[in-house]
Simulated assay, not measured.
Amino acid sequence: MSAPESAPREEGIDAAAARAAEVAARHADAVDREGQLPDQALQSLRAEGLLGLLVPRRFGGPELPLRDVVNVCRRLSEGCAATGLIFAMHQSQSAVAIAHAGDSDWHGGLLARMAAEQLLVASATTEGATSGGIRTSACFLDQQGDGLHLHKAGAVISYAPAADVFLVSARRAEDAAPSDQRLVAVLREQIALTPHTPWNPLGMRGARTDRYDLAVRCGAEQVYAEPFSVHMSQTMLPTSHLLLGAVWFGIAVAALGRARNFLRHRNRGGAPLNPIANLRLAEGETLLQQMHHSLAACMALYEHPGRATGTERLVAFNTLKVGASELVVRITDIALRICGIQGYMEPGDFYLSRHIRDAHSAAVMVNDDRILGSLSTVVLAGPLDRDL
């Protein structure tokens, strides 16, 4: 695959993101209806050079700050949440690949390819044997004479048919403890994926999240040096929650935007003013402000980690995810109440079926109860009062 003709920074990331978002929005209904990958949107992301935004300049990328990438994610999600979700997951995995490449020639070469070829990176960190938990593994890295082998059963992977690179977690060795994990970057040609029965999900249908058995044969140099727990705490947790928060925010903005357009259309048509609907629109805006302020606060914390302790950062990023997943459902419900039957029925300019179904994915993608369970001991031990 050839490199994009121009980097997004040269002509303006906003213009490139706007073009990709327009393509994503144009095909969003078909992607949702047919449960297919947003191929046209992915092609546009590649053509615009938006998949390699985080790659450092020394590897040929634009090295944009995460804040810019989060804003692109929000914009994509307003038009097509499935496209935004794929973009968010890809960029979170890219952040891991960048932050933990170290001085490895192989991983440095991968980063150069990610920028030049606009490779799409997917995660394969879950496993059937661990019931979806990613902090332990049953499978292990097996060094044999012809390379490193890995067999993983029941991994839940999104957009696998479109991915060029997979970051796969496993135990360090056969005799390693379940929590003694490493991450390995695997190229498409080095992995064999055997799909289980395809899922027919309620929402985020275009992300094509399915369960797979996978068999890997690759080189030992493709394993990241640090434990997977380091990747999780330092990079994956904060970036994924910020990016996913932007997805939920984008859904909420789009849904409330349709509700506002409905009221404006109704008013222009000469219908009597509906003060209750106007009140609900204002209520929705207050909740949008809450989402925005939570995202902005956590972004500042990401950019200035010294302002908080490690525990405070852990709580902040996890509560961002849980809070945003609850707020997006409330906002899409408010939008439906404003639009009434026109929001309930398809097709039409004001229907909200896709937004509502996509919003409900937020609480079950990295299940909120699992996150709250891990936070419970931290909250029990820590103070509740804090200065601004």
Rank of each mutant, 00 (worst) to 15 (best):
G343L: 04
M1W: 10
M299Q: 12
G132A: 10
L120H: 15
M299D: 15
F350V: 08
I191D: 00
R313S: 08
S169W: 14
T235G: 14
A153S: 12
A220V: 10
D368L: 07
M114R: 02
V253C: 14
M204D: 09
A324I: 04
A155Y: 01
A124F: 02
I338L: 08
P161S: 08
A129G: 04
L110N: 04
A316F: 06
H265V: 05
G203M: 01
L375G: 01
I134P: 01
P383Q: 09
G250K: 06
V31L: 03
G145A: 11
V378W: 08
W106P: 00
L273V: 13
D105K: 10
A82C: 15
A271Q: 14
A101K: 04
R113A: 06
L273D: 07
G145Q: 13
H293R: 09
R75M: 15
L263G: 03
G310N: 15
V247R: 13
D210L: 00
L66Y: 02
G203Y: 03
L281S: 02
N261L: 08
V96K: 15
F166D: 00
D103C: 12
R75I: 12
A259Q: 05
N367R: 15
V329Q: 11
A18F: 00
T235K: 03
L327N: 13
R208K: 11
R268M: 14
T209H: 13
R182V: 08
T136M: 12
P238T: 00
A162D: 07
R354M: 06
V364F: 13
T125M: 11
G340Y: 11
A3V: 05
R172A: 10
D39H: 15
E48A: 11
L187N: 10
R208V: 10
L388T: 14
A129Y: 03
V253W: 12
L187V: 04
L66C: 05
T197Q: 15
V72P: 10
D333T: 13
A15F: 09
H90A: 03
M345K: 12
N267P: 03
L243E: 01
M89E: 07
K152Q: 01
L244D: 06
Y159T: 10
S353L: 14
